[in-house]
């Protein structure tokens, strides 16, 4: 019988928390929230136990793709300040462990979701993991300055997953929610990239400010903000939206547009003078912007549930 002492004795023993960190818990929280909203606004009610189990599967699937992403990106994570403390570059978890955990949890989450919810939801979860790991991390992240536009798509799927768990199929509402996150992601991340530029430069990732310069990035942020406004307002005119969503969305979009305009007009001297204050503010606001949009969808769903919604808005989509 093999003796336990033959098991490799590294200086540091990976603790459970290190493995949890592989799953990117902060991203998971966002995934749980948006998937839950997608599920709750869907016209088909879901049993609470099924809802809990399904959301857990979606969260684990997202976590698994995070682990696979950390496994693939371990070389550049070690260079960038923002990521050098991650479990693999800091030496707490071995790359092989991350790969094994990522693959195992991917398979498990997809299979369990198929059993708990339906095959369509499981298929979309598998596609989301594939998209994030293979298309984004392995394929595009290091090749094109538009990487974040594609990568945003993977982060955009959770509300659709929640919707499909409830209904078993796709319709225009979840597609609009996906579009909302998809188009929101580039300005959100490019604002961050503006002051994290040195990091990405060091790691050789062609983030837009690295590849095309700061001026172009500011123009892109403004352009995507313009594109985002109609997409963010559109759910008002579906069965999941309403006047409350529309009113709040309108205010948020005006503030966002003003912020993007301010970034567009800023020169290098401005941002040096206040150490990227406007960029950081804009980045912070984008998070509030997305969060409040989803909260308002929940508010609309609650109003509908209690028959309190004002049916002043036509349903166009």
């Amino acid at each position: 019988m093999a003796d336990v002492s033959s098991i490799d004795t590294r200086e540091y023993e990976a603790q459970f928390g290190d493995y949890v960190e592989l799953l990117k818990p902060r991203v998971m929280r966002l995934v749980v929230f948006t998937a839950l909203v997608g599920m709750l606004v869907a016209p088909v009610p879901v049993h609470p136990v099924i809802a809990f189990a399904s959301i857990l599967c979606i969260a684990i699937g997202a976590g698994a793709s995070g682990a696979l992403n950390m496994w693939w990106d371990r070389d550049i994570d070690a260079i960038m300040k923002r990521t050098m403390g991650r479990p693999i570059p800091s030496g707490r978890v071995q790359p092989g462990e991350a790969l094994a955990i990522g693959l195992a949890l991917s398979g498990l989450s997809v299979m369990l979701l198929a059993v708990f919810a339906n095959l369509a939801a499981a298929g979309w979860l598998a596609f989301t993991i594939f998209f994030y790991v293979v298309v984004y991390s392995i394929g595009l992240k290091r090749r094109t300055p538009q990487n974040i536009v594609i990568g945003g798509a993977a982060g955009a799927f959770p509300p659709l997953l929640g919707w499909v768990v409830a209904t078993g199929s796709i319709s225009v509402e979840p597609v609009l929610l996906v579009a909302l996150i998809l188009i929101w992601t580039p300005p959100h991340f490019w604002a961050l990239a503006l002051w994290r530029n040195e990091d990405y430069k060091a790691a050789g990732i062609p983030m837009l400010p690295v590849a095309r310069g700061e001026r172009v990035t500011r123009r892109y942020i403004f352009g995507y903000t313009l594109l985002l406004i109609p997409v963010a307002l559109a759910p008002s005119f579906t069965q999941i939206g309403g006047i409350a969503y529309f009113a709040v969305s309108l205010v948020l979009n005006v503030v966002l547009l003003a912020g993007a305009w301010r970034l567009l007009k800023r020169q290098e001297s401005d941002r040096d003078a206040d150490n990227f204050r406007a960029e950081k503010q804009f980045f912070g606001f984008t998070i509030v912007y997305l969060f409040v949009h989803f909260v308002m969808l929940l508010v609309e769903a609650t109003l509908r549930a209690f028959d309190l919604s004002i049916t002043a808005l036509p349903i166009w989509f």
């Binding site: 336990v4 002492s5 098991i7 023993e13 990976a14 459970f16 136990v49 099924i50 189990a53």
Partner: peptide
């Protein structure tokens, strides 16, 4: 073995997760 105490946290957490998984599948 010294390994047992070193990995106690991991083993306990793993046990709880597996127990939770069984409970969840049962509930569903």
């Amino acid at each position: 073995h010294e390994l047992h105490s070193r990995r106690r946290g991991r083993n306990v957490a793993m046990g709880l997760i597996l127990g939770g998984l069984v409970a969840m599948i049962f509930a569903v």
